[in-house]
């Protein structure tokens, strides 16, 4: 199907050399349909697994399990749907780097907010009791 259409496009003609039946440019990387469908099937399967897993009382592990599954799904999307597996290493580098910066932002803010939380709790309780007491006078 693609091959017949390609004949209309003069610019693509010289690039078709050496690519056999595929009529795409040397820098294009078309994903095979099997691959696309396989990734999609895996994503759906993981969605089902995570929904089912949510019905079990996993306690503290619940967030770990659901985020692990989410990360596997995200990796599939990034690596195959977004072609990062085949892409220039620099694009992968900046993507991973951005995640590192998110981790930094999240990590330090989380550590800090947990540290000062007891102080906030203390003050809120004082605040609430005075507010409740206030109308009584």
């Amino acid at each position: 199907m693609a091959d017949t259409q390609q004949a209309n496009h003069p610019h693509s003609a010289h690039d078709a050399h050496g690519h056999g039946e595929h009529a795409h440019a040397s820098f294009a990387h078309p994903m095979a349909p099997r691959m696309l469908l396989g990734v999609f099937a895996a994503l759906i399967a993981l969605t089902i697994i995570t929904v089912v897993a949510a019905n079990f009382p996993l306690g503290r592990w619940e967030i770990v399990v659901s985020l692990t599954i989410a990360t596997i799904k995200a990796s599939l999307v990034v690596l195959f749907f977004m072609h990062l597996w085949y892409d220039k290493p620099f694009n992968a580098l900046i993507f991973v780097a951005s995640l590192a910066f998110v981790a930094l932002f999240l990590g330090i803010t989380l550590i800090d907010s947990r540290e000062y939380q007891p102080e906030i709790e203390q003050r809120t309780i004082e605040h609430v009791t005075t507010e409740v007491a206030a109308p009584a006078q």
Binding site: A2, Q5, F40, F81
Partner: peptide, 15 residues
């Protein structure tokens, strides 16, 4: 996402 990825494939193959 699947159809989008497929659209990219189609555009690469000029379909």
């Amino acid at each position: 996402s699947l159809t989008m990825a497929w659209a990219v494939r189609d555009s690469q193959l000029v379909n």
